[in-house]
């Protein structure tokens, strides 16, 4: 009786006309151990279907909330600040004449100018002295050149002596 019913169900199943409930019945029947021998080959199919359903997805999914956007903007802000740092000091940098400063500042400026010119004068004097050194240096090198003649002369005399 049961077998008859199952055979009918299988026929319906093969033409895809079974309802979910009937399919559940079939699955339950093939799960049991007393399957009729001529239906044995269906058993693995239904077992496979119910086995496959047990497989699970075990990996975690990283669900990022939208906090990351803030970090992106931090770099932009840093660049903006840096650029401001470069430009702000240049804003007041229009060329100025001596008259724009206060009298005290002008006085200071003139004083420094004077001292600097004094220093440069003295430096020039020093340089003249250095010129004398230059000349002695030149004379020395001329002397060296002449000395080399002597060594060449020495070489030739040696050759002559050997002969």
């Amino acid at each position: 009786m049961v077998l008859n019913n199952i055979e009918k169900l299988i026929e319906k199943y093969n033409s895809a006309e079974t309802t979910l409930q009937e399919e559940a019945e079939l699955k339950a029947y093939f799960k049991s151990n007393n399957v009729a021998p001529h239906l044995e080959h269906y058993k693995s199919m239904f077992l496979f279907f119910s086995e496959s359903k047990k497989e699970q997805y075990t990996k975690d999914v990283p669900l990022n909330t939208k906090k990351t956007k803030l970090y992106q903007w931090i770099s932009v802000a840093a660049v903006a600040v840096l650029m401001l740092g470069f430009f702000i000091p240049n804003w007041n940098n229009e060329p100025k004449t001596l008259a724009d400063y206060t009298p005290e500042e002008q006085e200071l400026y003139l004083e420094t100018k004077q001292t600097l010119s004094l220093i440069s004068k003295n430096l020039n004097k020093g340089l003249l002295g250095m010129n004398a050194l230059d000349m002695t240096g030149e004379n020395l090198s001329m002397g060296l050149e002449k000395a080399s003649y002597i060594t060449v002369f020495g070489d030739t005399t040696n050759k002559l002596l050997k002969n």
């Binding site: 093969n14 895809a16 199919m45």
Partner: peptide, 22 residues
């Protein structure tokens, strides 16, 4: 269309299973 496809698929599985079984 789904029923047709399903019955075809089931038929293929059944036939191949019968072949390996016997």
């Amino acid at each position: 269309a789904i029923r047709v496809n399903l019955s075809r698929a089931r038929k293929t599985i059944r036939e191949k299973l019968t072949n390996t079984h016997q």
